[in-house]
């Protein structure tokens, strides 16, 4: 009897575990199937066409792709130096009394849902952008800034963790040669933790590009490529969030699935690069 239960238990755990792989394959398949119509009708034009006009059955994803790339790029430019600064402060500079409370509150802020960041952005940051740059305040720039603030706690916490892996004895050796704090950080700590730091930045990039709620509030969902950062724009997740429930034709519906598939492929690729190339054997949740 015991033997049978033992076998059942072993097999059911294996079944559930394998179903995770099956699930991922299923997600890709379903998204692919539902994208078929749009792929056949629009082909490669889908990603090069700039006009998105559902009422005219025109579906060009380039503005959304452009918006995703630019808003994420803006977010990274702003967040990377801040995250490094915060991480240096937390791992090398802060007095012992500050280290733990500030560190923990940063980690807790990383747990705050992104919808809250979006809401804060809409009510408090949009007016600032409007007053500073004119326009309506809902813009690519606003989205980039809100996104950067949303990914900052995660990036800072992981960068700090990577820096903290540097053995004390290695840092002491550099101090023993007459190094200053900055010498030790730039010559020892950063090179030592390099893979972990770059990996966590790329992982943050992968998350930012798929982030929906922090940007949906403040981006405007306007399908237009504009070099003016203070103009409203859209991104792939913003388009999905705004239009999925409105899709009234098969082609519209299918092109939204193609956008989803595109987004999944992009983030899967970026996250895989971070994980397999930089974070091998270390786990970043």
């Amino acid at each position: 009897m015991s033997l049978i239960i033992d076998k059942i238990f072993a097999h059911s755990t294996k079944l559930v575990a394998i179903s995770v792989l099956f699930l991922v394959a299923w997600i890709f398949t379903v998204l692919f199937q539902h994208s078929m119509e749009s792929m056949q009708a629009l082909g490669f034009d889908f990603v090069t066409e700039t006009k998105w006009a559902p009422n005219l059955e025109k579906f060009g994803a380039l503005p959304a792709i452009y918006g995703s790339i630019v808003s994420t790029f803006l977010a990274m430019i702003l967040a990377v130096p801040l995250a490094i600064g915060v991480a240096i402060f937390l791992s090398e500079l802060a007095p012992a009394k500050l280290k733990s409370p500030v560190g923990v509150s940063i980690e807790l802020l990383a747990a705050i849902p992104s919808v809250i960041y979006g809401m804060w952005g809409l009510f408090y940051f949009v007016p600032i952008i409007r007053d500073t740059f004119g326009g309506i305040g809902i813009s690519m720039l606003t989205a980039g800034i809100v996104l950067s603030i949303m990914i900052l706690p995660f990036m800072a916490a992981v960068t700090r963790d990577a820096m903290n892996t540097t053995p004390d004895i290695l840092k002491e050796s550099a101090y023993a040669l007459g190094g200053t704090k900055w010498d030790v950080i730039k010559d020892i700590v950063i090179p030592y933790a390099k893979a972990g730091i770059i990996g966590s930045f790329i992982l943050a990039l992968g998350r930012a590009i798929g982030e929906t709620m922090a940007v949906t509030f403040v981006m405007g969902n306007v399908h237009k490529i504009s070099l003016d950062l203070t103009a409203p724009a859209t991104s792939i997740p913003v388009t999905l969030a705004n239009e999925f429930t409105e899709a009234d034709t098969d082609l519209y519906y299918s092109s939204l699935f193609e956008l989803s598939l595109l987004l999944l492929v992009i983030s899967f690729t970026i996250i895989s690069i971070a994980k397999f190339y930089f974070l091998r054997r270390t786990r970043v949740a």
């Binding site: 053995p167 002491e172 050796s173």
Partner: peptide
Amino acid sequence: MIFQKPTAFP
């Protein structure tokens, strides 16, 4: 100073 363990820099 020389330490307990070798401390080759990266």
